[in-house]
Design a protein around this nucleic acid. Structure first.
Lengths: 221, 221
DNA sequence: ATGAAAAGTAAACGTTGTTCAGTAAAAAAG
DNA sequence: CTTTTTTACTGAACAACGTTTACTTTTCAT
């Protein structure tokens, strides 16, 4: 049985090689640079060979998206030592948006492929996108719990927060705020902070963040 | 000078014809159905002819996006007779998301093209995307004004609201909420209502909307 | 060593957006 | 009215894309 094992090992090595090449191309030239022929050239194989390890291009990109969500998971993990659950949520949003800005093409494709949340019957373990969302829900639950609010609100609040972060990220990534919103970075973070403050019941959320303590935290740590 | 006028008229008629064909194809088969050859066949001309009236495909799609923003403007206009500014904002968000759901491919492309907000020096009149955003800012201003809050907050609140609507719309359109959020429609609208209530300073926003008056308005009017 | 199965290649297929030499029609010039 | 020039249009071609397929090479089992 050693021969089959070696073959499986080789195949998975090949998959990894293809995937790494895709990652490189993506990092170097963005989405347009990722073509099957370019990948083939990078791994020094013929284009047709790729189809022996991936059904089609979309499957490679799906893998890439999962990698993106794993990066988001790593970001969430870094925040686990923050004691204050509200501050943890605030930082989560901040990091989330920063991630989108640092990997715009990756972020765009992560939410362009579609259907990444659905758990396919074949996979046993939870997929990264779902895990990331559940982590967010946990953070929200901790926050609501801390102030004695009903946990039944968790799905709504989590969706409210995530959808806004996603909206801001998308608008930033697609360069849609260039015209009317100025200064860009500050407005985006302030909008996120404002909503979080409002949702958390902070009565002072009406006061301009520019005059409050929030102004000191405009730059990500 | 009559001859040049007629030519200009013909040209603009041709542009309109091309654009209408694009619209039809888009409505019938979504974005993948919109190819230069398909447009050419629809208007009964050679593919090359299109390039005499549009620089490239992107310019046609830009036009299509502007048309989409004009639809959004029309939706905003319908809401102008609502007396309560808060209710106006609520309905604006509801309709915005409904629009995205009714024209998913159009909405997706409206925010994929990018740079639609920037006013190019050539155009005198304001472009629809900018107008739509300014309308939103006006609605927010009216709302803040009604409760004596500082108008300096308008940009932040407007961005906070719009980005969430956009985020929800994008997640819906790209079928990204299918797995974890259930029931979908209700959660989306509740998330939007929740954020608006929180931002408006409603102290009762912590109570589940399912028990409040919001549950009666789950279906768009 | 021989035959079967797997891995890899080169070329081709069917798309796509876009360009371009050539042609037909229309306007301007004589 | 004829000639020239400008404009409108066509059909074929180009380059690039994802993917498939017939064929060759390598590898494994008998």
């Amino acid at each position: 049985m050693s021969i089959q094992e070696r073959k499986a090992r080789d195949a998975s090595r090949m998959r990894e090689r293809i995937f790494k090449a895709t990652l490189d191309l993506f990092a170097k030239g963005g989405y347009p640079a990722v073509t099957m022929r370019a990948i083939a050239q990078a791994i020094e194989y013929s284009p047709g060979t790729i189809y022996r390890y991936f059904r089609d291009k979309n499957e490679i990109l799906r893998e890439l998206c999962f990698r993106g969500f794993e990066m988001l998971l790593a970001i969430q993990a870094e925040l686990s030592d923050l004691a204050d659950p509200l501050e943890r949520l605030r930082q989560a949003g901040r990091r989330y948006i920063s991630f989108a800005q640092q990997h715009p093409d990756l972020y765009a494709i992560m939410f362009t492929i579609g259907g990444l949340m659905k758990k396919d019957p074949g996979a046993v373990e939870d997929r990264p996108p779902l895990t990331a969302y559940h982590n967010l829900e946990s953070a929200v639950a901790a926050c609501l719990d801390a102030r004695g609010w009903p946990v039944a609100e968790v799905p709504r609040v989590a969706l409210a927060l995530w959808s806004q972060w996603h909206g801001l990220a998308m608008l930033l990534v697609k360069d849609q705020l260039a015209g009317p919103i100025e200064p860009l970075q500050a407005c985006v973070h302030q909008a996120a902070d404002l909503t979080l403050a409002a949702l958390s019941g902070d009565p002072g959320h009406r006061v301009s963040p520019l005059a409050g303590p929030l102004s000191a935290a405009l730059l990500p740590p």
